[in-house]
Design a protein around this nucleic acid. Structure first.
Lengths: 460, 460
DNA sequence: GGGTATTTGTCCGTATGTATG
DNA sequence: TCATACATACGGACAAATACC
């Protein structure tokens, strides 16, 4: 309650109106005892009156005992009546409850390694960007050209995707872009095929537009593409390089099959390449979008490998969709921060992005190895590991005949936070509980401790 | 420039004398750009006056663009206009092609004063935020709690809007939030009333959801509320504190009428308070949302008064809408940057936001006065000025029997960029051409030159 | 290199003189 | 003479930034 706005009428003295207002504020309890009133200057400013006028009002309130002036600190509300019981403050109660089971180890996927973040470089660049004249304008509706150029170059180099900067759209998140996509596709397409299990955020996005949702079953060995022909939709959302969440990679044959399917049906493939940067064993497969550029919508992001909170994603649209997109969204402002875009563009331009990715691949590879070997050592036959070749998490299938809920709950008692996967399954539910373990922001030491605690928690 | 002692006369206010002295120092080049002025204390000491007296002088100089305050470092001289250099050097090669008709003065609305942006403070805070563990997680879907708390406090203090942080939703732009709003309202409401003329981006957002659009005619004197009853929609989008683009402010009577209308009809009012910070003459009216919190959806943003590129907006939802919103968007990620949100929250927490707004109000008031007086002087009867009481732009109605296009085209030949208003009008077209002049990122000097050039260009 | 003293802008309440009716 | 309102000016207190040990 620094200051307040109300209207001053004509006819009655200003200072009296101010006095009346605050009197009723205090009586109604809008300003509680010991809380400050707006400072004389601020109030005078916001009411556009002289300081002395507000002073008169305050003096009146002081005289009547509503408030007190404390030297040069300000004016404070008095206790209305000596209700001494109200003040018996017992603040530190709550803290007790919260720390009963402190989370020591959080196997959260989607966080990011903090220790290796190029803080200083990012800082340097973003500070520099802040001094540019450019930073003070409105952003381009489809994203800054400089960033799109950098992304185009990067995509070609790392994913084999050949594209013009013009075909790239910058957005704030994969999900937000899927929603935009849904908007322009829902007239032509009424249904969409998604993977089961699959990224829940994608499903939400399509549900949002009331798409009919068909599912393509995916197993640890890959998707069941034979089912594809039986489905009616001509639109499909897939995660070829690292299936979310099972971690399998689509084979070249499957990729070609999929593209043929899309071409025959005049459909589109939405390829979400959400964490393609992190493949630890073989060379990463080229993206679907590198095989065919007319039927594949490519989605990428900076959240997984950089900063989740930065809200920068992008997509590459085939000509057909691009035109529709631009028509539909020309008059809309971009949702992503100009500053972030400019900073990221400079970051990439200076080669820092490649450097960072390279470094992080090693870091995460080591963590993955650590996690997998720990799991194998401690759990032996009681779990099997899914998706250990890439990405920032693994799934563990727990052969203990316990529910997912039980496993998570037990772990939390031991101070370990692990995550469910049931939310990703639609119809294709697995027989056994599968737990998701992200490792990106844990040290090897923490991973080891975490696995040991899990063993104790689950009793195996 | 440490011991600048001059003698104060009697008769004129001290702070004015100090101001005059330094003004002439700077104009004469006695203190060069980027050099510091004497510190407030030093000067106060050596002139034997109070610090506040010298502070007033410095504030005046800031408002007029002579100097800038850099946090707690000191006050520094700004670059004066490069008027002198214009005629001399023809710098590099490139400029030759591009500057066939070089835009010298850009009366763009929606940009932001760059010289007074609290760069250092923002930098400091954002650097600090980058070191926090918090910054490496995903953001909350409806915005960070700390920022929402700050906004709640600010809204109460400055706009009289009483709300819980929980009822605030953070988004990336007004338009994006309107689209989200449209999504949850389009089932119950099929049509919406918008102002004519009005903010084009809002219309696009509602068109996007295929709302039936009805218009409420607005004139320089205010909206024609008598028409309201004849319209079928129960949803209305308005800009009460500073009508976009005409600049009129809704009277108290009209506000109450509108709220009654919404209550009777079980409709909602969407109140876009897009630049309420900048009102120069009377005190600002409290927001509609401060009168009624059940039927008013309040929209605010940080783009107009801070950084357009930061992409931070917010809205306050009444309980009814809030529940629907949360249900619909619970599974969606926030579109605005976590980092920006945390930084802004800290910025507000430290009182920097209030300080910045206060300073900018002075700066913009000064620029507005400059623009209006220049226009009045040079154009006399040939134009009338609309909306000179608030905001970051004025409209000028040009009584020259020329088309908007011609006026813009002619101006551009003379190196002045001015903007159309016809895009804001739907059916309620004005008889004469109206031109939009934004002044936020121009200095008084540039404004003067711009108006002179306009006079030449339009030949009056 | 890390604590400490100083400098800096900024806020605070306040006092005085003056201009209206 | 009085009530009301404003413009001008004062110095104490504080926290961030910087300089100095």
């Amino acid at each position: 309650m620094k200051n307040t706005i109300f209207i001053l009428k004509e006819g009655t003295p200003k200072y009296k109106q101010i006095y009346e207002q605050f009197k009723s504020f205090i009586e109604r309890g809008d300003i509680l005892p010991d809380n400050p009133l707006p400072s004389i200057r601020q109030l005078a400013d916001s009411l556009q009156v002289s300081r002395n006028t507000t002073l008169m009002a305050y003096e009146q309130l002081v005289a009547e005992g509503y408030i007190r002036g404390e030297g040069r600190k300000g004016y404070f509300v008095n206790e209305l009546e000596p209700v001494l019981f109200q003040n018996t403050v017992i603040p530190p109660h709550k803290k007790h409850k919260e720390t009963v089971t402190p989370v020591q180890i959080d196997f959260r996927a989607g966080s990011v390694d903090q220790t290796n973040f190029p803080l200083e470089i990012w800082r340097r660049i973003s500070n520099k960007v802040l001094t540019l004249r450019e930073s003070f304008r409105y952003g381009e509706p489809f994203g800054e050209v400089c960033l799109r150029e950098q992304i185009a170059a990067y995509l070609f180099q790392s994913r084999g995707v050949k594209t013009e900067p013009d075909a790239i759209i910058i957005g704030s998140s994969t999900q937000q872009m899927l929603i935009h996509l849904g908007q322009i596709l829902k007239d032509e397409f009424t249904g969409i095929i998604i993977e089961d299990p699959g990224y829940d955020g994608a499903m939400e996005a399509f549900r949002f537009h009331r798409f009919t949702i068909e599912t393509l079953p995916v197993y640890e060995t890959g998707a069941n593409f034979s089912k594809l022909e039986k489905l009616r939709s001509r639109l499909i959302y897939v995660t070829p390089s690292h299936q979310s969440p099972l971690g399998v990679s689509m084979s070249i044959q499957q990729r070609q099959l999929l593209i043929h399917w899309a071409k025959n049906k005049n459909g589109f493939i939405i390829e979400d390449d959400y964490d393609s940067e992190f493949r630890y064993t073989q060379q990463p497969f080229p993206a679907l979008a590198s095989i065919d550029s007319t039927r594949v919508i490519y989605l990428g992001n900076f959240s997984k490998s950089f900063l989740p909170g930065i809200r920068l994603s992008y997509m590459v649209l085939p000509q057909l969709v691009l035109n529709r997109y631009k028509n539909q969204f020309l008059h809309f402002e971009s949702t992503s921060s100009l500053l972030s875009q400019l900073t990221m563009a400079k970051f990439m331009e200076e080669g820092e992005w490649n450097r960072h990715i390279k470094r992080m691949r090693l870091v995460y590879k080591r963590k993955m190895q650590c996690l997998v070997s720990e799991l194998k050592e401690h759990f032996k036959q009681s779990t099997s590991i899914i998706g250990e070749q890439s990405g920032l998490y693994v799934l563990v299938k727990v052969h203990l005949n316990r529910s997912e809920e039980w496993l998570i709950e037990r772990a939390s008692i031991y101070g370990v936070k692990v995550y469910p996967t049931s939310i990703y399954f639609i119809k294709n539910h697995p027989g056994e509980a599968i737990i998701k373990l992200g490792f990106s922001n844990l040290t090897c030491d923490e991973i080891q401790r975490g696995v040991k605690l899990l063993k104790e928690a689950w009793g195996c």
